[in-house]
Structures are given as C-alpha cells and as structure tokens.
C-alpha cells in the first residue's frame, strides 16, 4: 500500500508499528538514500575519519515552516552544516530527529523531507540516522526538527585570539533571514521580496584553505545577528570591535522593514553568513578570494579589532558619531530558527 499524501499524521503512524515503518521506509529512506542509512540499524556505523572530530547539535522550531528562500528542512541541514564549518571542520554526517504533531499534513512533511535531502546533497553531507516521534494534537507546533552533525578537521586549524588591527569580514548583506521570517509573521503580512539567505557555507569556507593560518576565528551570525557575535568574541577574547556603518550591506527591503518595525539589522538573524576575523595584511586577498565564490560575491570588511575597552562593540555611524552596539535586549521576535 502506498502512503496517501493527502492525509495527515495520526497517532497510528506515531505508534511505531507498520504505519510508522512504512513512512520511514517510503519517505525518509527513499529521499535521504545513502549506504549508512540503508544499514537500518539503531545507529549508523561510520568509517574512521582523517582528523579530529567536530560534533554539533541544534533544534529547529522556526515559524512559519515555509518562507521565502527556504523552509524548516533546508534550515535544519544548513544550520548544523554551518555550525560545523565555522569550526574549520568538513561536515560529513547528519542525524535527524523529527517531532511531529498529530494532524500535521503528510504533504508538508514530504516537502520538508525533500528539502532536507536537497540541502544535504548541496552541502555534500549524508543523513545517516534519524528518529521520528508523533505527539498529540496541541502538544507541539506542527513539526520540530533536531539535527546533529559530525565533521572532520583534516588540517590543524583552531580558532585563535584576534589581535589589535585584525579585520572582520562578512560574506554579504545582513538581516535577510530574520526579516524574511518577520515579514511572513502572523499579523504582519507584508508583501515583501525579502528572501532568506539560508545556505550551507562549507564550500565557501573550504575555498579559503590557502589562507587558513591568517584566519583567527569564524562564526555564523544567526540569532542575535552580527552584534551578538562581536559582543561574544569581545567578551571571550578580551578585545573590542569597531564597526564602520558605511561598510555594512543591508538590502533595501530589509532596511525598510527594519524602519517600520523599529529593529536594528545588526540584531537580525542570518542563516547563510559567516564572519571571519583575519590578519590585517591578508584581509583584502581573503575578501577577493571569497568574492569568487557564489556565496561570497558581496564579501566585505565591516569592522576592525581594537584593544579591550569597556565598550565592547561600537560603530562609527554615517554621521561620524560613535555609538555602542549592544546585545539585543529581549525584543519580541518570532521563532526564527
């Protein structure tokens, strides 16, 4: 019997019997298709890796599930891939856990699973093990996905402390993902062309291998945006950062919506951006190399490292004034990742 994708997830599917088995077999196994998943064990047995392992996990609860430029499926793969990649690892394997609410449309589940499969293919990672649970109606919000990933650090790259005068590079415009979600938020209904930047960054980061010893630290500015990353770094490495407002790239629609909603794009989440602290003398070369990659065409230097200061992150404004750039202070944002 075939699955009727016009139907909904019910508790029979969640019971772990034949129906669940069929769903996993016909949908997940078919879409994620790879030799490790085909073992169908309670675990995936993986070959030895050539270097230190990187291991990361993240849960995805984004609302709405589908948005311009992506969906919870592509986000769940790219997010974990990026968390591995910014540690200098080559992402290899992903474990996926689904928590689905009773009544969730099977057609949407299929769309999400296909999107995960596509994202995994693009990022060159394999979804090697997984789990599916169904919770009663009202006990979840459609679908939640957890992904964990393993990568290998083949070279000996490790993050090191930024030095004075080092520069901060980002691979393009800020705030696209958060605003793509915001504009679709219930009650807002903006007709906007903002598309999430959701993308896997591992191939862009790998392309920088020739310069790896000049890269001090990398991070993907997701929740809390660019300001959160800089504030975290400043605290952890005991240094300060000065952003040059003129250098920031913010798409027109993102700026417009930020104005209306009173948000600062520096606080808004990205899902396809990487920030790198690099040695000053190599910043231009690294930036040029990044521009050769499809995900790095708009790469630019946006900030510099200064000695530790009680103001951890500041910004030279377009007006020539200097202002503090603080952490986001608990604003009301929808779930964005």
């Amino acid at each position: 019997m075939k699955i009727n994708y016009k139907g909904n997830i019910d508790l029979t599917i969640g019971a772990g019997g034949r129906a669940m088995n069929q769903l996993i077999h016909d949908l997940m196994l078919a879409e994620f298709d790879n030799e490790f998943l085909a073992q169908q064990g309670d675990q995936a047995i993986l070959p030895p890796a050539n270097g230190k392992l990187a291991f990361s996990t993240d849960s995805y609860v984004v609302s709405p599930l589908f948005f311009n430029g992506g969906d919870i499926g592509s986000l769940a793969i790219n997010g974990t891939v990026n968390d591995l990649a910014v540690g200098g690892a080559i992402p290899l394997y992903i474990a996926a856990g689904f928590i689905i609410e009773e009544g969730f449309p099977l057609a949407q589940l299929r769309e999400i699973v296909k999107s995960m499969a596509n994202a995994a293919k693009t990022a060159n990672v394999k979804i090697v093990t997984g789990d599916t649970k169904v919770v009663e109606k009202g006990k979840g919000d459609g679908i939640f996905i957890n992904t964990s990933g393993i990568g290998v650090v083949e070279n000996d790259w490790v993050a090191t402390s930024p030095q004075d005068d080092d520069l901060v590079i980002i691979n393009g415009a800020i705030g696209d993902h958060g605003m793509a979600i915001m504009s679709k938020r219930q009650g807002l209904n903006f007709a906007s062309d903002i598309s999430s930047d959701c993308a896997a960054l591992n191939s862009l980061i790998t392309s920088l291998a020739p310069y790896q010893k000049h890269i001090k630290v990398m991070r993907d500015p997701t929740r809390g945006g660019v300001s959160a990353v800089l504030n975290e770094w400043a605290t952890f490495y005991n240094c300060s950062f000065e952003i040059d407002e003129e250098k920031l790239l913010i798409n027109e629609s993102v700026r417009g919506l930020s104005e209306i909603l009173g948000l600062d794009p520096l606080h808004i989440a990205n899902e396809g951006k990487v920030m790198l602290v690099v040695a000053k003398d190599y910043a231009d070369e690294i930036c040029t190399l990044m521009k050769n990659h499809p995900l790095g065409q708009e790469s630019r230097i946006i900030a510099k490292v200064n000695p530790a200061n009680q103001v951890k992150v500041s910004m030279k404004t377009l007006f020539g004034g200097l202002r503090r750039v603080d952490w986001l202070n608990g604003e009301q944002l929808p779930r964005i990742c």
């Binding site: 404004t317 007006f319 020539g320 004034g321 200097l322 202002r323």
Partner: peptide, 9 residues
C-alpha cells in the same frame, strides 16, 4: 539622537 551619535557631534 543616540542611534546616530548626534549628542557627540
């Protein structure tokens, strides 16, 4: 005033 640093200039 604060966001653009007007008070400082």
């Amino acid at each position: 005033i604060h966001r653009y640093g007007i008070n400082q200039i």
